[in-house]
Design a protein around this nucleic acid. Structure first.
Lengths: 140, 140
DNA sequence: TATTCAAATGAAACAATGTTGCAAAGATAC
DNA sequence: GTATCTTTGCAACATTGTTTCATTTGAATA
């Protein structure tokens, strides 16, 4: 689905900045950092607008923020299935962070476990970051 | 175990800043933010020294950093068992973040699952943050 | 197509967070 | 107590994130 269609589906105004962010993430085929998106957007990029659009796109369920570390944040495009939902739908999945190539991979297929919490604790959702080496970097 | 003993055990120099951080975390009985530690340390606090000591204590396995969000970081004291290890030993456990009271709880007893990763992916460790309501805040 | 109005933008200014270099002070071994 | 190496604290800087407000723009409607 193209950027314009995604925005229309979620009833969000089509603006150059938002189109740019979505297209960049589609082209990148993986979660990207602010700087990577910035570089791709070139003169289209404004930092304040970027943060606001990330907020908007995130709240709409179009993208999700991946916090690998407090100084290492990536933004990933939600999968196509999630894009068909009109309402907010968190596309919950774990993430893999490769300590060699620094890439983040969305592990759509990895089952999020049911954690056995102490009595009285109610879980709403969870963030799972698995660190290690990806396929390319572990082959040696 | 008191702060001095912990530092000696890990062969790290005993300094006021480090003692302060450890004592504050012991008194707090829960993971604390930089600001909470700062307030407890009062005039003892220096921001640069704090960051460096967090780095040192963390590398030694005395404390661990919990990144709930990129703008929401806490530091937790490692449990006593881990303190008996001379070498670095990551005391791996999941964390619970209460969206009502903003407290973080170390879930020592929650089993870290074996994630079924795609072929070639090697896991080293993982960060698990479970969000929801804690015992006190869910009772209503 | 022109009009309209709410929403989005971009500039400035600010706030918080994290890092580096370096001289002075302090902790431990002797 | 003295020597030595580590740690501290200051200054300065870099990065990341937020708020306010006047201006511009998107898109619904006439």
């Amino acid at each position: 689905m193209n950027a314009t269609a995604i925005l229309k589906l979620h009833e969000i105004k089509k603006t150059p900045g938002r189109i740019s962010i979505i297209k960049t993430l589609q082209d990148g085929c993986k979660p990207l950092s602010e700087n990577e998106i910035k570089d791709a957007m070139a003169e289209n990029y404004d930092r304040i607008t970027f943060y606001r659009n990330i907020q908007t796109l995130s709240a709409a369920g179009i993208i999700h923020k991946i916090v690998v570390d407090n100084t290492l944040v990536r933004y990933g495009l939600n999968c196509c299935e999630a894009q068909h939902e009109h309402h907010f739908h968190r596309n919950e999945h774990a993430h893999f962070y490769c300590e060699s190539c620094q890439n983040v991979v969305c592990l759509e297929q990895v089952q999020i476990p049911q954690f056995n919490l102490p009595t009285g604790y109610k879980s709403v959702d969870s963030d799972i970051i698995i660190r290690g080496k990806c396929e390319k970097c572990s082959g040696s």
